[in-house]
């Protein structure tokens, strides 16, 4: 099979925040380290991981909308060229679209319709929006309302519609479905899948592993700001085919797989343990885990663990 063209290649990406401690002493807070994700044409990549593992920061980093005290490192390569600030500015909203995590991203002072059409009034964009809204069970009157007049689920659907308006090459969906019921989640997911099948790359950031597995081609697992596993979605059918102990723990935590949990919490970036960040919670933990852990190829996937086989 012919290797598909890479749309976005994220290499050794890092984000750190500059913070003031007592007085004027500055410290860097490295929230994302050693992150590698590749998205190809027609591919849907799901990023799963615990809250606070830096998933949303990745999305905002790609679009260049991180807060001013954040510093990015590593490389973002879009369409074979380095993604610079200028390119980010030109591409976002056109070729690269974001479905943001919070309904607070909608402009509260602008009516829904004009907001989603970005002010365009021509017949074509009107009809397109009507069509999209119909698909999401939103009545046409909704376009004349303000965001605060809609329910949480309706605002969600409005946010998702923004991605369907243009002809995006890369869609970044940051937790697009919480607050939606199952049937609607499926519909939204199938629309993202359609976008991918038409050739766009889709990066789906979520913690709903079940949904991700239904539609995505690949799953990237985040833990404490780094990628621990990059696996085919099929590998999540059983615990044995997974590689990293954290991915296995995620699998076991699904209600239908026993609803088991592991002790402890994800470490705060300031007091990360040496070596493997998952080490203190891991049953495989040994001396070897205290060193630098690099990514390895194991059974066709990539994993950041010395013990994985």
């Amino acid at each position: 099979m012919e290797e598909k063209k890479v749309i976005l290649d994220i290499r050794n990406f890092s984000v750190s925040f500059e913070q003031y401690e007592k007085g004027f002493r500055k410290t860097g807070l490295p929230v994302i380290r050693n992150l590698d994700v590749t998205i190809r044409e027609g591919e849907m990549v799901a990023v799963v991981g615990s809250s606070g593992s830096g998933k949303s920061l990745l999305a905002h980093g790609i679009l260049g909308i991180l807060p001013y005290n954040a510093t990015m490192g590593g490389e973002l390569v879009y369409d074979g060229e380095l993604l610079t600030k200028e390119r980010q500015k030109a591409l976002r909203g056109n070729e690269i679209v974001l479905v943001p995590q919070s309904v607070a991203f909608l402009d509260p002072l602008m009516k829904i319709g004009p907001q989603i059409r970005k002010g365009k009034k021509d017949q074509a964009s009107r009809e397109k929006l009507n069509g999209i809204f119909e698909g999401y069970h939103l009545k046409n009157e909704v376009q004349e309302l303000y965001p605060f007049e809609l329910s949480g689920g309706m605002n969600r659907r409005v946010l998702v519609s923004t991605a369907m308006m243009g002809n995006p090459r890369l869609v970044i969906a940051d937790e697009p479905t919480p607050g939606l019921h199952m049937a609607m989640v499926r519909r939204v997911m199938s629309h993202f899948r359609e976008l991918a099948d038409q050739g766009a790359g889709v990066l789906l950031i979520t913690h709903d592993l079940e949904q991700a597995l239904e539609v995505a081609d690949r799953v990237v697992v985040f833990y404490a700001g780094t990628t621990v596993e990059d696996a085919d979605a099929k590998d999540f059918r059983s615990e044995e085919t997974l590689r990293h102990p954290y991915s296995k723990a995620l699998w076991r935590a699904l209600p239908q797989n026993g609803f088991q949990f592991i002790r402890g919490t994800q470490p705060y970036v300031k007091d990360l343990p040496e070596g493997c960040p998952f080490g203190p919670r891991c049953e495989w933990y040994t001396e070897a885990c205290k060193g630098e852990i690099s990514c390895r190829e194991v059974r066709g996937g990539r994993v950041r663990c010395v013990r994985a086989v």
Binding site: V48, G49, S50, S51, P178, G179, L209, L250, A253
Partner: peptide, 12 residues
């Protein structure tokens, strides 16, 4: 809906 925003392990 107390656990929609939580990761799987925290949920369980």
């Amino acid at each position: 809906e107390i656990s929609t925003m939580l990761d799987l392990i925290t949920q369980s």
